[in-house]
Simulated scan of single mutants.
Amino acid sequence: MKKVIISACAALLLFACQNDQSENTNSETAIASRRACASQDVLHAQLKADPSLAIRMNEIEAFTAKHLSSNFTGRLVNGKIEIPVVVNVLYRTTAQNISDAQIQSQIDVLNKDFNALNSDYNNVPALFAGVKANIGITFVLDQVIRKSTTKTSWGTNDAMKKTAQGGIAPTSPTTKLNMWSCTIGGGILGYAQFPGGASSTDGVVIDPRYFGLSGSANAPFNLGRTATHEVGHWMNLRHIWGDATCGSDLVADTPTHNEENYGIPAYPHYSTCSGTPVEMTMNYMDYVDDAGMYMFSAGQKSRIAAIFTSGGARASFAQ
Rank of each mutant, 00 (worst) to 15 (best):
K151G: 08
A227W: 08
K176E: 06
S216K: 01
N157L: 11
P220C: 11
N218V: 13
R209P: 00
G166T: 09
W180G: 04
A217L: 05
H229E: 11
W180L: 06
T149M: 13
V204C: 02
F194Q: 06
L177F: 08
N222A: 10
G215E: 12
N178R: 04
S181Q: 07
S148R: 15
G186L: 09
A198S: 14
T228C: 08
G185D: 05
N157D: 15
P170R: 05
S148H: 13
G187A: 10
A198P: 01
P195G: 09
D207Y: 00
L223N: 08
G232L: 04
I206C: 12
I184E: 02
G212D: 00
R225D: 15
G187W: 07
K147Q: 15
W180S: 12
S148M: 10
L177D: 13
Q193Y: 07
N218R: 14
W180D: 04
R146S: 05
Y210T: 03
D158M: 08
R209I: 10
N218I: 07
S214E: 11
S172Q: 13
A169K: 10
V205T: 14
L177A: 10
F194I: 05
K162W: 04
T201D: 12
Y191M: 07
G212F: 00
E230H: 11
R209S: 09
R225L: 13
T183V: 13
C182E: 01
L223K: 15
A159I: 00
I184K: 01
A164N: 12
T152Q: 04
I168S: 03
L189V: 11
W154H: 10
A198G: 01
I168F: 07
T149Y: 11
L223C: 03
H229Y: 11
A219C: 04
T175F: 07
G203P: 06
G196M: 02
G232K: 04
V205A: 03
G166L: 11
P208V: 07
L213K: 13
S181A: 15
G196L: 00
N178G: 08
P220Y: 04
Q165T: 13
S214Y: 03
L213E: 03
M179N: 06
R225T: 14
V204H: 07
P173H: 12
N222I: 02
T228L: 07
K162S: 13
K161D: 02
A192R: 00
K176N: 14
G166D: 04
V204G: 06
S181I: 04
T156M: 00
L189R: 06
G167C: 09
G212K: 01
L213S: 05
G155S: 02
T156C: 08
T228D: 02
P170M: 07
S148N: 13
K161Y: 01
V204W: 02
T150H: 10
T149W: 09
D202W: 03
N157K: 09
G187H: 12
G224K: 01
G232I: 05
S199T: 14
A198L: 10
K162N: 15
K162P: 00
V204I: 14
T228E: 06
G155E: 03
K176D: 12
P208I: 08
I188V: 15
P195M: 03
A164P: 09
Y191T: 00
A198K: 06
